[in-house]
Structures are given as C-alpha cells and as structure tokens.
Design a protein around this nucleic acid. Structure first.
Lengths: 256, 256
DNA sequence: CCAATAGTGTCTCTTAGACAATATGGA
DNA sequence: TCCATATTGTCTAAGAGACACTATTGG
C-alpha cells in the first residue's frame, strides 16, 4: 500500500467497521542515521557526533539528518556520509552505504513522530573527521567504549554490527575496511576484529586465495612491512561480491 | 540523527553554508507493505489485493496501510497481516513478519511523499482470503504470473523473494511455510519451490535430520500419505532458528 | 643469533553430492 | 503385479581445522 488518501480496506467482509479516521494519517518526519564502521589499531570504531541541542544535548549520537523533499533515503545517506567523513561524493558512492533497517517506535524521539531509516557503511581507516571548531564535533569511538547514546542509536549500532558480522561470512565486504592495497594479514585483522575471534592464519589465507575473485595480487613485486617481520605481498579487492562457499565464523555463533 | 528541529550540522568546518531551510522538513506519510508468501501446489504464491481507487485503480497491489499515530511499523504490519489473512492476532504474532527494507523514492507515489516500510511474512497454505463481496478483493497469485503491480510493489516482491531464498539457506525458516506437522517431502518442496531447483532427496533428508533442532519427529506412529506412495513420517518444527552449517543452494547462485 | 611476521605443506575429519538399493503403500 | 513415493546406505570429493615447518626481514 502506498496511498495516503483513505486507506484501502481491501479484503473481504467481517472487517471491523473502522473507516477512515483522519487522525490516522499523521505526518511523520523521516531521517536517516548512519552506522559508519572502521577498523583502527585492531579495534572496531564507529563514527559519532556530539549533539548540540536538546534533547540529549551533549550526548553522542549517530551522524544523520533529514531526508529532503526530492531525495530518497539512500541519497540522503550518501549525502550525509560525504558531509560527515569529508570524503568526496565519488568515494562515498563507491562505499555503497547499505540500508540496515527502519526504526519507528512511536516514542523514539520525545518531541514528535520521527521514523529513521538506518544505513551501515564500512570505511577504511580514515583521518579524523574535520577537527571541529564548530558547535558539534565528530570523532571515531571504539565500539566497546560506547556510553549511552542518544535516542535508540545504541540499538542501531548493535544491529549494524550484527549485520556486518554476518555479511563478512558470505560476501567479500571485508575489503571495504581495507585501503586499496592491503596484505592478507590486514584482511584477517578485519575478520578477527569484527567477529572478536582469532583465526588460523594458514587456513584463512587458503580460504581467501581459493575464493575466486575475492582478492587479486598486486602485480609489481612491491611489498610492504607492518613492522619488523617478513614483508607481506599486497592484494587488492577482486571483482566478486559473494563468497561461495562462505567463510563461516568459528562455532557458527551469530554473535549476540 | 533524529531531531526534526534544525537539522544538526555536526562535524567540522568547510561545510556548505546551507543552514536550516524550513522547506527541508517536509511531512511524510508512512505506510507498511506486506509481501506475504506461501507455497501452494508446488508453486510460490503471494497475497495481493485489488486497488479500489486511483491511482492504479483496478491494479493489483500488496496489502498494507498506514502506520497509526501510536504504533510502530512492526505493529502496523502485524495488524494489517491479521486483517488481510483473517488469521488471529496470536497466530500472526507467531509468524513474526520480518522487516524487509524501506522504499522512499520521491516519486513512488504520484500524489505525495510516501515512505513505505516493507515486511515479509511466510505462511502455510491458507484458505483463500475472505471471499470479497466488498469493493476490493484479495487473493493468492502465483509468483510467476504477476502482471504489472501498483507503485513499486513488483520490486518489493522481487526483493522479498530474494531475501527469503537467502534465509532458507542459513535459518530454519522453511518450516514457516509448512503446516504444524509436515513430511520431509513437503519441506523439500518448499526449498525447491522458492529456489527453483531440484534437490536430491536422500541428501536433503540427511541434512535436515542431522541439523540439530531443525525438525523433530512427531511421536505417535501416525503417518500420512500424499497420494499413492509409501506414507511418510511426520515432523514438526524444532527449537532451532539458525542452521549451522547452512544448507546452501546448488551452484551457490544468489538467484537474481 | 633471536624475534617477529609471512608463507607452505600435510594430515584428518566433516560434509555434501551422486547414486544404488530397499521398503511400503495404492491401483 | 506395477508404480510411486519414502527411507537407508555407500562411495567419493571438497573443504575446513589443526598444526608442523620454512622463509625473510630487523635488531
């Protein structure tokens, strides 16, 4: 259904004779909220902004904003992501923010009826978002150091984390957390950080390299070192998007 | 973000100096749309209603309706599902309609700005929805005989079908398509119908029976026949919700 | 030489795919 | 009896977990 005129009452007969009540058609505000994840120093981080107004003045919240009159929620999400991260719209388009779910509890905003469409985005380690001489500031926060967030944003983040953990299993999404060229060790770090587990390096390597299109070696013999071990070969993301068979996390836990 | 007052502009400096424009805050109508699937006679069916008004008068559309002032989208979905299928609210609650995604294209409704939160629900083969002496009628339609649907409902159904196909792989959801007691042949039919493939019976059986909590045998020696072969043992849904390891569809295709 | 990280090889166990063979009902 | 479906069993191949071992760098 879609029509805002008298709501259809389509099917048969024994329907409660509740016809159109104008009070049913309340205006909603629609926003997007962004759960932006990255991996920094082997820890999962999320992008938060500090609220500059009531309610929740001074609390941390997800970046986001209103859906404008002529844009879709997805367009709003990409626009906000570019604004918050300072990345170019082109780069942001490549990140393909993905719709997570919509939050519509009637009391989620104390002031009025606000429905929010939440998106997840995975980014490689980025520079700190613009140093804020502004009213409100934005920054990366370790996922496990989150305090109480504004509105239902804590729940949105939890849902987002569960989603990306699941998607690592059966998609090639993990490369989105990495720079354009990366080592298999870095890729493994992504899995270990998001899942909160330790993986066997040889087995991880075998799985990644035998999954067609997951990664492809960077031609030039260039190599790079992370510290003081043997330099690692570099790879970049391949053309595949799905992983078949999937790379299941140990114990098959669905991380609560 | 969530606040409908002046949208926050949280992060740093070089921000386009476009401040709050009251025109940005347009009122939206919010609806829910239901993609209700069932398996009938080895074919996937969806529940459709005929529109009784413009636009798309006489076209088929998904059941759905407005989100009311004091309910969440999920509550609205359960309410509409009960109304459309004639099932009791208790039964509907057990079906756990699941949020699919939100559709927000600015032009998806020609009249005004409507954002719709779509839900999927899987039901066993049900009686035809109330014979309609009413204005509009509702009925089960084979998925592959869909004509052009109202609004973007064709796309919603396609998304819903892809989602349930994927969920069959790693959840025990398939039992939702079956009556309380069912045979393994019926369960296999669900997979074959939704995926559009043919599965090897002995292998399917082994997989289902060795997945702890997927199904449990019905105690009483009661058996039942589907036609003229050997009667099959009956099972009911087990306690598990996830399948580990998953039951991957052949060729690992993600059915486009 | 040692520490640290990258990479190779191997063995085993689980699981899935293919498919033969048997069981049990109705026409 | 034949036919259709259910059920059991076997063989094989792919993939994952465990883990020993080698390679290459910096100190």
């Amino acid at each position: 259904m879609t029509s805002p005129q008298p709501p259809r009452r389509p099917s048969g007969q024994p329907r409660v004779p509740e016809n159109y009540d104008p009070a049913d058609f309340v205006p909603f505000a629609v926003t997007v909220d962004l759960a932006v994840f990255t991996v920094r120093e082997s820890r999962l981080h999320v992008l938060l902004v500090e609220r500059g107004e009531e309610p929740y003045l001074g609390h941390w919240a997800l970046p986001g904003g209103f859906v404008r009159p002529r844009e879709s929620a997805g367009q709003a999400a990409r626009r906000e992501l570019a604004e918050e991260t300072g990345l170019s719209p082109d780069t942001v388009a490549g990140l393909r923010p993905e719709q997570l779910r919509t939050y519509s509890d009637p009391d989620r905003d104390p002031r009025m009826r606000v429905v929010s469409v939440a998106y997840t985005a995975l980014v490689p380690d980025l520079p700190e978002p613009r140093g804020g001489g502004d009213a409100a500031q934005a920054r990366w926060t370790p996922y496990d150091e989150l305090g109480r967030l504004a509105f239902d944003h804590g729940r949105i983040l939890a849902d987002g984390r569960r989603r990306i953990g699941a998607k690592l299993e059966y998609t090639c999404l993990a490369t989105a957390f990495c720079p354009p060229e990366f080592t298999l060790g870095e890729l493994q770090q992504v899995y270990e950080t998001v899942w909160g587990v330790v993986l066997d390096r040889p087995n991880f390597r075998r799985k990644v390299l035998t999954s067609p299109g997951f990664v492809e070696p960077v031609e030039g013999p260039p190599r790079r070192t992370g510290g003081r071990g043997k330099p690692a070969a570099l790879y970049r993301a391949g053309a595949a998007t799905a992983l078949h068979p999937p790379l299941l996390r140990p114990e098959g836990r669905t991380t609560p």
